[in-house]
Design a protein around this nucleic acid. Structure first.
Lengths: 206, 206, 206, 206
DNA sequence: CATGAATGAGCCTTCATTCAT
DNA sequence: TATGAATGAAGGCTCATTCAT
């Protein structure tokens, strides 16, 4: 589920290859994801995106209304993917929720671009109330789901989270983003450490 | 030590007042600090800065070589201030290091602009290796100081940090930045919660 | 002979109906006529035209070589129609040429789009000598016909036009276009007023 | 009062010459006047204007907020000039109003660019209600002044205008613009012809 | 023939930077 | 030193045109 793209493909190959619009759109989104995660929204020009994707500017505007709209789309995909990933990991864990969490944390390291994109989305939301509204609405879904997952894990150990589960999710997300910002190589380890000690010191359930 | 500026001062007053070059420079830096923290580096134009400071573009280029150099200066001041603040709190705590930490955490909420600026500095470092080098060098000093402070606090409770003290500082800083990014109102509380549980579960010293 | 088009027809109906190429071409021309008359040549995009006509861009380029060529065609049709209208009115007037002129003037109000298109054609001719040549050639035919009509009318009142009949036509056309430009609601009245007073003060024939 | 500019000056000379901002603004306005009159508003790019004036695009935006605003300014100047010219001619005529009118008509031939600009302004007003409002407000002043002038001239011959004086002005302006559109070399003559015959056939005053 | 995605030139505009004052 | 007009390189976006389907 890593977003690193193989940008080795040449423009020539691209124009020879039959690219359906869906394919074009997907490639533009991938390129935008990569570029925005690495250079920021303002630091990424539409030229950057289309060059990375192997297209020209016109292709961008055939697929997106304007620069902001690709960020909105990126946000939707990102949040959707986040939620789906969490759901899938829980489902696959077959009841062993701890495994789901382990996998989720492990995936965070592999999805550094996603964390950076999320930071950019958050920053962009400052300057755009409409965008902020969409962002926070989607974020809320994720927050609740993650909160429930964490609460369940606490419960499995017979513990009650020390704070409201949604707030616990906030703390978790904050930690994840802050560590991503530092390119912290030990992010997963740190997160485990924090969660484990929070769990160890949490009050016993009932 | 809050960077909120009083922008109520009128341009007229400014030109009447004799503004030494030092004063001009300081005001430009304050304005830049505020603007960059709130709108990002790319989102802040030199016009924004000089308007906020009550000057014109010429004043900017009389005091700074270019746009990037004001960010470098901002970074130096920011890191210097961070280190000084920590030192001062420790000194003022009169041996009760825990109080120093409490004050430091309490100050984080009041210094949201600083946290946001730090995030911007971190992001800008991505695109500029020279800048990155300066940034990380200064950051390292802070990291070590903070690490030692944390280690001392653990020691006072007879505990050994579960990870290397510098890494503990990384974790701390990551958490602080991540929560700032969210405008998390419970940031201080969350940080205390994490530190307390880490301390509680840490191995006993010796 | 008004060019207002019924744009209520839906795209769906269009694609169900078998549209011969002639039909497609005609609809595109009508749409272009309307759009150019109301928004100007530069202000009308090919998208505007095809949307108005219920087609897509491909249809446009299947029927016209480029954007300019539809204007050329529009010009041909416009001038042809002008001439035919004049001829028809004269024929229908059954010898009473004054009635023909009255009808012609009355028709001007109904053909505001045509007058506006003519203005656009005239303006476009500035920037395109080839186009200008075609335009003026066709215009000349009309000018002569109109001049003869006016001369005949003067003659019926026993008068000689105060200026060369072709120039009289220029004056007439100028007045018509200038009033169209203003969306002058009294255009017909003004034209009659001018013609009548010119006729009243014209020298007696022979 | 002709707007034809000497564009022979080279860019080099310009940058050597001390150009005050007022001078720059004036040159840009002259260039825009010329370009818009000859190529239309849509057909004139900001590049065209600044090249003609011997500046770069940045100079344009240092002097005008955007492309539309230079047109607004052009309109103000144009209408102001129109009104002033009329006023001046009347004043200079020393009671012989007919001379004022003669001069006014004579000036029309020399101010072809102004007539063409006015046509562009009129056309642009179609697509911009705000602009249209300003335009028509200014136009109204001119219309009334011109109407009174015409009425006075009729009165001097002991005649009453056959239509309301403001409408007479509309007719006059319409004729002027229509003839300008054709680049009619005999415009002045035609206008005199029309006015004279209208006057000759007008009802006697009282 | 018609579709509509992609191209690419060109447009309006912003903004860091220069420089004469 | 501070001013602010002018520069010039990008950037976002539009649109006539092409072409595979």
């Amino acid at each position: 589920m890593n977003h690193a793209i193989d940008f080795s493909s040449e423009k020539k190959e691209v124009s020879l290859r039959v690219t359906s619009q869906q394919e074009t759109r997907k490639r533009l989104l991938e390129a935008a994801h990569h570029a925005v995660a690495n250079r920021g929204y303002e630091g990424t020009s539409i030229s950057d995106i289309v060059n990375l994707a192997g297209f020209t500017k016109g292709a961008f505007f055939s697929n997106f209304e304007n620069k902001e709209s690709i960020l909105l789309e990126l946000m939707r995909l990102q949040k959707e993917e986040d939620i789906n990933l969490l759901g899938k990991l829980i489902a696959e864990a077959n009841g062993d929720i701890a495994i789901a969490l382990n996998h989720y944390i492990a995936s965070l390291d592999e999805r550094h671009d996603c964390a950076m994109l999320d930071i950019e989305l958050q920053l962009y939301a400052r300057s755009n109330p409409t965008f902020a509204k969409s962002y926070h609405a989607l974020q809320e879904t994720n927050r609740v789901a993650l909160g429930q997952l964490l609460e369940t894990i606490f419960a499995m150990k017979g513990k009650l989270p020390p704070i409201d589960s949604a707030k616990l999710a906030d703390l978790f997300v904050g930690l994840v983003q802050g560590l991503a910002l530092q390119h912290q190589p030990n992010a997963g380890l740190f997160i485990h450490l924090v969660l484990d000690s929070l769990m160890a010191t949490a009050p016993v359930l009932e």
